[in-house]
Amino acid sequence: MDRELHLPKSWTDDRDRCRAAHIAEQRAFAAKPDPARAIVLRAIAWVTADATYGQE
């Protein structure tokens, strides 16, 4: 349903490498729990928004 690319610090510290891989300039290092938390929060927001338009 969702995914988040985990980039090691060696990648996020090397902006030339990120540019070559077409990774956004604003992308910074995040420990593994941080992207997982973002995925869960997006899923909750999606379910909540869907409930507004549905019968339940």
Rank of each mutant, 00 (worst) to 15 (best):
A38F: 05
R3P: 02
M1G: 13
E4G: 12
R19C: 01
C18G: 07
D16N: 04
I39N: 01
R27G: 03
W11H: 10
R19D: 03
I23H: 06
I23D: 07
R17Q: 09
W11V: 15
D16L: 06
I23E: 09
L41H: 05
L41E: 13
R19E: 02
R42A: 12
A21D: 04
D14V: 12
R27D: 04
P8A: 04
R42G: 07
W11I: 13
L5D: 00
L7I: 11
L5N: 06
D2W: 10
D2Y: 15
E25H: 10
R19V: 03
R15E: 14
E56T: 14
A51Q: 14
T48N: 14
I44D: 01
A45M: 10
S10W: 14
I44L: 05
P35D: 00
A20V: 12
W11R: 02
A36L: 00
Q55C: 11
D50C: 11
W46A: 04
R17H: 08
D50R: 15
H22T: 13
V47A: 07
D14H: 05
S10K: 08
D34H: 00
T48R: 13
K32C: 01
E25Q: 05
A21L: 11
D13S: 10
A28M: 11
A43T: 12
L41R: 07
E4L: 10
Q55D: 08
G54A: 13
A28N: 02
F29S: 00
I23M: 08
G54P: 04
A36N: 00
A28T: 14
V47E: 02
I23F: 09
R37E: 03
R37S: 10
C18L: 13
R27F: 05
L7T: 07
R37M: 01
M1D: 14
T48A: 10
R37P: 04
E56H: 10
G54Y: 03
T52R: 12
A49N: 15
L41Y: 07
R3Q: 05
T52I: 15
D34L: 01
R3A: 06
A49M: 14
D14E: 08
K32R: 05
A49Y: 10
V47P: 04
I23A: 09
R17I: 06
T12P: 07
D13I: 07
I39Q: 01
A49C: 11
K32Y: 00
T48I: 09
D34C: 00
